[in-house]
Design a protein around this nucleic acid. Sequence first.
DNA 1: CTTCCAATAATGTATAGACATTATAACGAG
DNA 2: CTCGTTATAATGTCTATACATTATTGGAAG
Lengths: 233, 233
Amino acid sequence: MKRVSIHDRIRGDVEDRIMSGIWEAGHRLPPEHVLMEEYGCSRMTVHKAIDGLVDRGLIDRRKRAGSFVAAPKAHRAALEIPDVASEIVGQGKAYRLGLIARVEREADSRDRDLLEIAGGPVLSLHCLHRADGKPFALEERLISLAAVPAARDVDFAQESPGGWLLAHVPWTDARHRIAAIAASLAVADRLGVAVGSPCLSVERWTWRSDARITYARQLYPGDRHALVASFLA
Amino acid sequence: MKRVSIHDRIRGDVEDRIMSGIWEAGHRLPPEHVLMEEYGCSRMTVHKAIDGLVDRGLIDRRKRAGSFVAAPKAHRAALEIPDVASEIVGQGKAYRLGLIARVEREADSRDRDLLEIAGGPVLSLHCLHRADGKPFALEERLISLAAVPAARDVDFAQESPGGWLLAHVPWTDARHRIAAIAASLAVADRLGVAVGSPCLSVERWTWRSDARITYARQLYPGDRHALVASFLA
DNA sequence: CTTCCAATAATGTATAGACATTATAACGAG
DNA sequence: CTCGTTATAATGTCTATACATTATTGGAAG
């Protein structure tokens, strides 16, 4: 017997009934005061239980009308996008980082576009992540030096940009774009695949408050890499 | 001025301080009774405010020790994978469904593998989703008829499988796999792209409780479609 | 018949207090 | 100094109550 709190029990019960199909989408659940009697607890406790389900999108509540099982609109999945280095190590492979280019420059028009900045210095990095010696992913990264001046002094030949940023930039908000593209000549060469072969492109824009921090684009050989997203309540 | 609840204001304040980097990962926030005095509210209200942030993974709480800003582990993104039909309509385009094949059969070995079932009847569908007449996505779908017998009587020439299932199967748990693949001859032909051109492959396994419901694989022309994942706290 | 308004039923928010739980810190015995 | 024990400070849960908010419903006025 796991000793759980009342609100956990209520939430679990309701969740089970939804998951099992007893309560279909649109079903109105008993009003809080009824559940409160059923479980012999206070209304606050019932409310808190349902609160959790509302947060997770399983329940819609409308004043006066009641609480309803939400219609599943779309599949929401949690996509874990780990730092490339930890991903490789997590697969039990040897990680090696190859820095192809490192350039510090005034933001050109493309930089300004990607980082959504008016100008200022940027650090442009190109690197190849290798797993057990084999090319794993090609990364292009732009870092706004105005937002992260400390990046100027980091030796990115030793430490992967993603890993360093994750550890040193306080908090991030991010947007990702995932697409399939054909390998250009330069990309194909570095990844060791045929020109035109499909690659998975993962782009990430990262910012803190309103300041864009960094832009990254990672290219994975299509036949060797896939993203997995697990269900999200 | 937006009139928000006290707990919303507290949560917002704390969130801002985390996002802006004032409170870095590991920072211990003031104990609840302090915030309670600061905001002139009850402890319950403070607690509820923090609750929301805990749910979103921004805060770790430990009894006796206090509440701490959580360390960003990896980038977690929420990937919305809507039903293809609603996605197209949402883009303001005309949706048209083309049913290429519909076969009801005993599960063969591949079916059993994909649906993780021992056997039984399955419904196999192939269809082409069109947006404004142009090929948008090619879909292969398997439905376990043991789990969803009602699917037998649905006219999938009229209603997209994804949409129907979303509306009629009570609730689902799912796993997604996203990869880049090269268009085979058959795929290229139907999507109207060159053979070997990159396509985004989104596979989805869906189940309820322990019963696998359906498997779907959607192929999008790589140059016309991308998945966007927004930040998830 | 329609329109408007008031009663009502539901959720939304908040309070003050009580007791439970648990990790840490302080302290005392050896 | 080390090990255990006790005190304590923090979060975790719950109650009973109050009032706010809002959508619905039903009835009255026109």
